[in-house]
Design a protein around this nucleic acid. Structure first.
Lengths: 278, 278
DNA sequence: CTGAAAGCGCTTACAG
DNA sequence: CTGAAAGCGCTTACAG
């Protein structure tokens, strides 16, 4: 131990990993689209929480960023880097079933808020109760007297997207309101895309009195579009977001939104991926 | 190659690394204090940009999160994980010279916005021209007629902190204004700490007409404190921030602030740490 | 050009 | 209990 100190020695984890088949590393796959980078506050909070939670029990965090191997399956990428578990946060990203194939039976896997709809019965995942949350948010808008609520949904892939639409529909049905498919648009969780959709809806005289978006960033895009068209929020058109990111509080007037416990979600995912250690 | 496809084979990077002494991995040390996590938009943009830049040339990103080895030196941590280069983003964090000792001559190292003041002549670092930026911002406040400008500085360690104070001082001197050390306070880049400082300054009747903070988050803390004391911004007290994070734009009225090109900084740091590959 | 051997720095049985 | 050997999955010289 004296020599260890003197030489500032520490064991080479690669050599150790060759034997023990462990690396004390948790891998994370992160959306690679613009709207799904760390800049998104909800996602960066997830990462912070994962980093902290696994750090306490001795793990480092590997972010898969290498774009030169985009044809490999997630399974082989995980094997290649020898991670002990993997967390998938693929919000807003095209999911390729081929890439995910076989991943689940080779190491601990958990999705956060982005389990593919076709797959969610077979895998671990952490998410908010999106259906109920969307139901509550929509009812809130209805109680305020709104009747023509535009649902600015996420993508057509993730369970979270579908569930938020389902909650919206359930609230309409419960209040004996018709479901108009033209009032359901897909903003891909993108502020810019949402801006465009709202601009085009208003310009095409779509009759709406409120907008319920599937993320706060989408809500900001929607509000910007409304303002640019000289519509007042919420007087002319009410807007409700989803996520409750920091900006929602700072925004004046503060954005009405659905809170997601991002820190807790990251923590829980970390514990699922390393059940023994935590 | 047919077998490779069929078996979904990919080489074990640990075994390969044992021979080649490379891992196609860039390590990142990140501040571990509350105010320096990914939740800080400036920092999460840096990480996004590093992730993207190194990803294009085939690298993954290792975030050192393991808290169980906090006594090791950075050098031994890097050796242990076999990273090919390391980026240090230690804003707002106590820097321990012992930990950094010897790191610089064992692998490519670059600091972002956080080089220890005692060390900055010997190492690579990427930063804004903080002195000039602080000078410009302070002059802006002076031109608006402000005479008693509180400098809400960062910490007492980082070069960026000192440089922003230096720029502030130079602007005062150039305009024949006295430098009052009581008007320089350290907010540790923290919103909460800044809130407290401003509260206590005002309660103690410190005579100020403007505040120049060293980060936007600190500016938000300052503004919150002023509002809670029923002071108007900017009518009673003007506030200028630093960073130009997304929130600064969304805030109403928009926060006056100094722009930092965070994406470019991350990109540049990535290129320095892997000069051959980019 | 092909194929077997040596060796990277560890851990884990195993022999002494 | 101590110490040498085998082996993890690769790469790189080297022999054939």
């Amino acid at each position: 131990m004296k020599a260890v100190k003197e030489l500032d020695y520490s064991p080479n984890i690669m050599a150790r990993g060759l034997i023990t088949k462990t690396s004390n590393t948790i891998g994370v796959f992160f959306g690679d689209q613009k709207n799904a980078g760390f800049e998104h506050p909800f996602l960066s909070q997830l990462i912070t929480s994962i980093k902290d939670t696994i750090g306490v029990v001795g793990y480092d965090l590997l972010i898969f960023s290498n774009q030169k191997r985009d044809t490999s399956s997630f399974k082989s990428i995980c094997y290649e880097r020898g991670v002990d578990g993997v967390i998938l946060i693929l919000t807003g990203q095209r999911r390729n079933d081929e890439k995910i194939f076989n991943l689940h039976n080779s190491l601990p896997v958990v999705y956060i808020d982005s389990v593919p709809n076709s797959n969610y019965k077979k895998v671990n995942f952490v998410e908010s109760d999106n259906e109920q949350a969307a139901f509550d948010a929509t009812e809130h808008l209805i109680r305020l007297g709104n009747r023509k609520i535009l649902k600015l949904a996420g993508d057509r892939i993730a369970k979270a997207s579908f569930d938020r639409i389902a909650g919206y529909k359930r609230a309409l049905l419960k209040n004996n309101m018709p479901i108009d498919e033209k009032l359901i648009q897909y903003g891909e969780f993108s502020k810019e895309k949402s801006y465009e959709i709202v601009q085009s809806c208003i310009r095409n005289n779509l009759d709406i009195d409120a907008i319920f978006t599937s993320s706060d960033m989408m809500a900001f895009g929607a509000i910007e579009a409304l303002k640019d068209l000289h519509l007042r929020v919420p007087d002319d058109i009410a807007v409700v977001g989803f996520d409750d990111i920091e900006q929602a509080k700072l925004y004046k007037p503060a954005l009405t939104t659905v809170h997601q416990q991002s820190y807790k979600m990251g923590e829980l995912a970390s514990k699922i991926v390393r059940p023994s250690a935590m």
